[in-house]
Design a protein around this nucleic acid. Structure first.
Lengths: 253, 253
DNA sequence: AATGGACGTTGCACGCACTGCAACGGCCCT
DNA sequence: AGGGCCGTTGCAGTGCGTGCAACGTCCATT
C-alpha cells in the first residue's frame, strides 16, 4: 500500500540471508542507489539494520530485541510455560508450544529434553507445516474454506517416506485430527523422531495454540510415546482452562 | 530521513509494549487515522504486524522469524556455540555470549545451568549495560570518546547496593576491566548472582563479543567462581583464535 | 605516481505518492 | 430507533520521496 515502506521492509528479508552492500540492496529492490541509501539510513536510525565494519549492512539488534519483546507479550506463552516445564519433568522429553499466524505455524516456546539426544528446533522458527503434529492441530481448526485454500498453496516436501505427500492427503489427515482432538507426527519430518500433540483452546473453543512432546524412537518406541497422550492432553487442557479464565494456576496444579 | 518509513518503524516498538487499535496507533504517531491505517496495512502485508481477532494489532510472526534468521547468521555465534557447550559441561553453570551494537549489549547465545537454580535471562534481551560483566568488556574496548559519550547517556539504575552508581564510577570500572582483560559482576544486577567474563577478540585485537559464566552464590561462593576464570579465559581465547582464523575448530579442542 | 573503476554520498528539480479531510458504513450500547 | 465509536474509502493538494548527475574516496592496476 505504501510504496516507500514496502520497499524498506523488503530490505529486511533480503538482509536476513546475509550481509549486503548498498549496490546489492539497490539492485535487488530495483531502485536507484540514492533511494536505497535513504531507506537503509532510516532503517539504521531505528536500529533495524546495522552497518558492520566493512560498511555492509545486516539486520540489527533492535529487530532482535523487538521480536524478543513480542514473544514475551504473548500471554498464552506466559500461561503455558510452567505447564510445559512440569510436563517435561514428568516425561523427560522435549516439549514444544506453537501458534498459527498468517499461513505459518511457529514455535513460541520449548523445553529441552533431559536425554542427551535432542531434536533440532528453535523458538521462532516456522515449523514444517505439512507434517508437524502441532501444525495439524492448528490448521485443522481453521474454517474449511481457509483450510482448503491454504492446503492448495502449500508445498509438500518429502522429508521422509512418511511425509504428507500432497494437499488431498493433508486435508484428509486434518479432518481426522479434527475429529479425534489430537495429532501425531510419526517420522514425517525426521525419520527417527515421533511427536504427539494436543490443542490448547480459548474460551470460545477455538484452538489458540498446540503443544507437543517429541522424542527420537531410539529412546522411546512409538507405543511408549503414544502412552503419554493422556498426560499431554491433560496438560493442554489445563493450559486451556487457565487461558480461558475458567481456572487459575493454583487450581490446575 | 524518510518520513513514511520513519513513521512505520515507530509503530513497531509501540506495539511491542502490547496490542493497540488503530486509533491508539494514530494518536501515538500524531497522524491521521487513515495514514496510520495505510502504514499498518503495509506492515501487515510484510507480516511485521498481526491483526488479532479483536482487530487490534500486535507484532507479527515474520518479525520473529527474521530476528531468528539474523541470529543464526551471526558467524561469531556459530563458532562460539560448541565452546560454550563444552564450558558448560566442564563447570555446570549458565554460560552467556553477548555482543555490543549501537549503544546496546545483547545476549546472542546461552547454555543453561545444569543446576536447578537458574538465572533469568533470554537470548535477544538487552543486558543491564551498566553492571553486566560482558557489557563492561564490550564497552571497555570502545574508543575513549565514544565510551565517555555513551557513559553519559546511560542511566544507572540501582538494582542492588553493588550496582554501578554513576558515569564516573562506570568509566573507572571500564578502565580497570580494560587493563586486566576480564570482568566480573558480583551481585550488581541481582544480589545473589555472580558472573565472571572474558572477551572474544577478532584478528585485529578488537573485542567482538564477550562470554560469561554466571552462578548464584548459594551454589558456589565468589571465590569458587573466580577460580573458574582461567577456564573462562581459555575458552574465550579458543573462540578468538577460531574466529580470527588463526586456528580451526579441531586445533582448539 | 598516474589512471581508471567501483562505491558511497550529496544537492537538486520533478512529479508521484503520501497525506489529511470528509463522508460512509458497520457495530455496540442506550 | 438513535447516537457514538471505530475502521474504511475516495479525493484533491502538496509535501516528500525519487532518480539523475556530479563529487569524493578508496583500491587495484599499469
Amino acid at each position: 500500500m505504501s510504496q516507500t515502506v514496502d520497499r524498506a521492509l523488503s530490505i529486511l528479508p533480503l538482509l536476513a540471508a546475509g550481509p549486503a552492500d548498498l549496490g546489492q540492496v539497490a539492485d535487488r529492490l530495483g531502485v536507484h542507489k540514492s533511494t536505497a541509501l535513504r531507506l537503509l539510513r532510516t532503517l539504521h536510525e531505528h536500529g533495524m539494520v546495522y552497518r558492520q565494519s566493512d560498511q555492509r549492512y545486516r539486520l540489527g539488534a533492535r529487530l532482535i530485541a523487538l521480536a524478543q519483546e513480542a514473544m514475551e507479550n504473548l500471554d498464552i506463552r506466559e500461561i503455558a510455560h510452567p505447564h510445559l516445564v512440569r510436563l517435561n519433568e514428568q516425561c523427560g522429553h522435549t516439549v514444544h508450544l506453537a501458534v498459527y499466524e498468517e499461513d505459518e505455524v511457529l514455535y513460541i516456546d520449548k523445553v529441552e529434553s533431559r536425554y542427551p539426544v535432542r531434536m533440532y528446533s528453535r523458538i521462532g522458527k516456522p515449523v514444517a507445516i505439512t507434517v508437524a503434529a502441532v501444525a495439524k492441530l492448528l490448521l485443522a481448526d481453521l474454517p474449511e474454506a481457509e483450510r482448503r485454500a491454504l492446503a492448495d498453496t502449500l508445498e509438500y516436501p518429502l522429508y521422509t517416506a512418511r511425509s504428507t505427500p500432497n494437499a488431498p492427503a493433508f486435508l484428509k489427515e486434518l479432518e481426522r485430527v479434527r475429529e479425534q482432538g489430537w495429532a501425531t507426527d510419526l517420522g514425517g519430518h525426521e525419520e527417527s523422531i515421533n511427536c504427539v500433540a494436543a490443542p490448547v483452546r480459548g474460551a470460545d473453543g477455538r484452538v489458540v495454540a498446540a503443544m507437543s512432546v517429541s522424542a527420537p524412537n531410539v529412546v522411546v518406541t512409538t507405543e511408549e510415546l503414544l502412552a503419554l497422550l493422556p498426560l499431554v492432553r491433560r496438560t493442554a487442557d489445563a493450559i486451556s482452562g487457565e487461558y480461558s479464565g475458567r481456572t487459575t494456576a493454583k487450581e490446575s496444579v
